[in-house]
Computed example of a mutant assay.
Amino acid sequence: MIKQLMLGVAAAAVLAACSQERSPEPVDKAQDMAAAPVGQASAATMGANMQSAYIPSAAMGDMYEIQAADIAIDKSQNADVKALAEMIKADHTAASAAMKAMLPQAAPGTVLPTELDQRRKGLIDNLTSASAANFDMAWIDQQIAAHNEALTLHRGFSDQDSPLAAHARSVVPKIEMHLREAERIKAAM
């Protein structure tokens, strides 16, 4: 049932993007739009309720954020985008290190993912291939979607009976700050 819901939401997002968006990179835009509801559904269901799903989801979220920030630092010509990317990179690097430090006691034997899943690889590929004219908006749109997903994941897990719930609560204020700043930048574009 959840898979059907996720597929239906993703298909609707792709159709909406294809029918409304006429940018030079419509396939990438459609893929990015489809990735957002899939990530939200995953974060709200398994990630928010099971430690075995929360840990890799949080780790991959941090990996994606760090890689996307590196691309923005390199490609963007917008000072606000670059500043936000620097902040995101620093905060998600710290969050990743904090979670890794907790794992031996909180989840002994847990192995963290070492590479991104296909959905997030696609997002990174879209940033890498984005034209200079479209890069900043593509990055900001991805950041808004990714930080909404991260809030759903961490807020949902924060009330679980797990030592990692404290970690989830501790990262929410930074994620909220990143989201507010991304939304401010988008409004100014």
Rank of each mutant, 00 (worst) to 15 (best):
K3S: 02
L5Y: 03
L5N: 01
M6H: 06
M6W: 00
M6D: 01
L7N: 15
G8T: 03
G8M: 09
G8V: 00
V9N: 15
V9Y: 14
A10I: 00
A10M: 01
A12K: 09
V14A: 02
A17I: 11
C18H: 12
C18R: 15
S19R: 08
S19I: 14
S19N: 14
Q20T: 07
E21M: 00
E21W: 00
E21L: 06
R22L: 14
R22P: 01
P24I: 05
P24F: 05
E25W: 01
D28M: 03
D28F: 06
A30G: 07
M33Y: 12
M33S: 15
P37H: 11
P37V: 05
Q40H: 13
A41C: 07
A41D: 02
S42Y: 08
A43Y: 14
T45C: 10
T45V: 13
T45F: 10
T45M: 12
M46R: 10
G47M: 04
N49V: 08
N49E: 10
M50Y: 08
A53E: 15
Y54H: 15
I55N: 12
S57L: 11
A58W: 05
D62R: 03
M63T: 09
M63E: 09
E65H: 13
I66M: 02
A68N: 14
A68M: 07
D70E: 05
K75V: 05
K75H: 12
Q77M: 05
N78F: 07
A79G: 04
D80P: 01
K82D: 09
K82G: 11
K82A: 12
A83W: 01
L84T: 10
A85E: 02
A85T: 09
E86Q: 14
M87L: 15
M87C: 09
I88F: 04
D91P: 13
S96Y: 06
A97V: 13
A97M: 06
A98T: 08
A98Q: 14
A98P: 10
M99I: 08
M99H: 03
K100A: 15
A101V: 02
Q105R: 13
Q105T: 12
P108S: 07
G109C: 03
T110W: 11
V111K: 01
V111P: 08
P113E: 14
L116V: 04
D117A: 02
Q118G: 10
G122D: 01
L123A: 09
N126P: 09
N126H: 11
L127W: 00
T128C: 05
S131H: 06
A132E: 04
A132T: 01
A133H: 01
F135Y: 00
F135K: 00
D136H: 01
M137V: 08
M137E: 11
A138E: 07
A138R: 13
W139R: 08
Q142S: 12
Q143F: 10
A146W: 05
A146E: 06
A146N: 09
A146K: 03
H147C: 06
N148E: 14
A150G: 09
T152W: 12
H154I: 05
H154Y: 11
R155T: 01
G156R: 02
S158L: 07
D159F: 08
A165I: 11
A165N: 03
A165K: 10
A166Q: 00
H167L: 12
H167G: 06
S170V: 11
V171Y: 02
V171C: 06
P173H: 09
M177H: 14
L179Y: 04
L179V: 13
R180D: 07
R180F: 10
E183R: 11
E183A: 08
R184A: 15
A187R: 11
A188S: 15
M189R: 02
